[in-house]
Write a protein that binds this DNA or RNA. Structure first.
Length: 140
DNA sequence: GCCAACGTTGGC
DNA sequence: GCCAACGTTGGC
């Protein structure tokens, strides 16, 4: 089991929209960055991820699960781009802000901190547990 | 709204 | 294959 982080903006794709898709989930389409795509290729069904909102909220707000492994991105004919499907699993009791993440020494190596522009990124098991704890959630 | 960091493109 | 120019992202 691996852990990931998906970055979105409320104005583009909100947590409410993601949750409204229910167990059917939705394609994480539109990624046009090789590093991000390569991480998606490594994802397996059942892996968990955080849903992070950049720009306005700047906080981890929920947990998602991979429900389909990498496949062609339906929003382009360009064969280079692939995406996975994810579904919302639960909302964190308390959103974990970027400020909190940056100020916590246990999270200083997070990709969110060291490479803030990467939109799909890996999260270590330790980082996963810390953020779940800060969010008032059991780390499962 | 600004700007630093980063990725991509294209000329050589 | 290098690198300058350009575009985009995202925190502040």
């Amino acid at each position: 089991m691996n852990f990931w982080l998906f970055k979105s903006e409320t104005t583009t794709w909100s947590w409410d929209q993601q949750r409204a898709k229910g167990d059917a989930g939705e394609e994480w389409s539109g990624v046009r960055n090789y590093q991000a795509r390569n991480f998606m290729r490594q994802m397996r069904i059942g892996d968990l991820g955080f849903f992070y909102l950049s720009q306005k909220e700047k906080a981890v707000v929920g947990v998602v699960q991979i429900i389909a492994e990498a496949h062609p991105d339906s929003t382009t004919d360009d064969e280079r781009w692939e995406c996975v499907d994810i579904k919302a699993v639960r909302t964190l009791a308390t959103p974990v802000s970027l400020q909190q993440i940056k100020s916590d020494p246990r999270l200083s190596e997070m990709v969110l901190v060291t490479n803030s522009r990467l939109s799909v990124q890996p999260v270590t098991e330790d980082e996963w547990a810390v953020i779940c704890s800060l969010g008032g959630d059991a780390p499962s």
